[in-house]
């Protein structure tokens, strides 16, 4: 078995890993009950799947320039994936797109309670833009 064949086999193995991670994300995104748990599933191919695919690509590279081109792809994905995840998670929490009965612990609620308490202590409105509180949802919807 030559070196080239070994590299080919390695590439295929890494591509298999990437494909299986994508499939796991697909299954999770269909089966999980609420946006927060679906976010958890959707991140699988975003970083680890991409790393596997890029390693497979790097094993086939004939020169260093190709490998160097792979680095910014991973860097940008690592920079931008948390940004979108943070925005989606924040919007989901604020507009209550989540199943409270599935949460074990809600640490953000403690921080919000503290913000409310601090604001009450200084006799001002808490600075929590966009947050939907329990009072809003207990009123009957149109």
């Amino acid at each position: 078995m030559s070196a080239a064949e070994l590299l080919d086999a390695g590439s295929v193995l890494f591509l298999f890993a990437a494909a299986l991670l994508s499939l796991a994300a697909g299954i999770g995104i269909v089966r999980f009950p609420d946006p927060l748990s679906r976010m958890h599933a959707a991140t699988k191919p975003q970083i680890l799947g991409l790393v596997c695919a890029l390693v497979a690509l790097g094993l086939q590279a004939e020169n260093g320039a190709t490998v160097a081109a792979l680095v910014p792809i991973l860097a940008f994905q690592m920079l931008t994936a948390p940004v979108s995840a943070h925005m989606v998670g924040r919007a989901g929490y604020r507009t209550r797109h989540l199943r409270r009965d599935l949460l074990l612990r809600d640490e953000l609620a403690d921080a919000i309670d503290k913000a409310h308490a601090d604001a009450a202590h200084h006799d001002v409105e808490p600075d929590l833009p966009g947050l939907v509180t329990d009072e809003d949802t207990s009123t009957p919807r149109p």
């Binding site: 591509l15 990437a18 494909a19 697909g26 995104i29 679906r38 799947g49 991409l50 695919a53 989606v88």
Partner: peptide
Amino acid sequence: LDRMIATDMLVATLICALAAEMV
């Protein structure tokens, strides 16, 4: 939000699939 999460995942899968096609 579910749609945007799924779109994000779709793009990530697309990137991996394009890499597989290149290999």
